[in-house]
Amino acid sequence: MERLHVIVLVILLIALAVTLVRLRSLLAIAILTGVYSLIMAVVYTLLDAVDVAFTEAVVGAGITLTLMLAAISLTTRRETKPGKRKGQRIVGAATAIVAGVALIYATTDMPGLGIQDAPIHRHVAPYYIETGPTETGVPNIVTASLASYRGFDTLGEVTVIFTAGISVMALLWRWGKDDR
């Protein structure tokens, strides 16, 4: 049943993508891209990739429309007609088709959705589950992986977030200026 919902949503996505390509009003395209992201987020949620879904929703539906509108207000509201030169269009179509076929070909190698003996579950995960609590002394396995086994990775992530926070502060905080 859940699979049926995913299929219906993917059909909606394809219809929407075709419409997006054919539309010429940039405003409509910016708005509809938000819908695309929302549907994509639902698909991710149904496929159990909740974190990916959340990123998609925040970036795609939350901030992209705002940024696109800002860009449109600085440029123009309508897309110009695509080039009439036939060669240009063929090169574009060929690039898109080749990239699409390559991506689809790459998915044929992937293990099935939710299969228990996929490589990712057999390689190092059992070791962490077994020895994690004794080796790190942390009872929660997620915390053990993040703070101990992947400690340097987490340190890098925290550095990135800290830098982003400082940048936002520097942008929003009008140091000493009182010209409101």
Partner: peptide, 8 residues
């Protein structure tokens, strides 16, 4: 999140 884009 829903109304951020709408407001913009």
């Amino acid at each position: 999140l829903n109304f951020v884009g709408t407001l913009a």
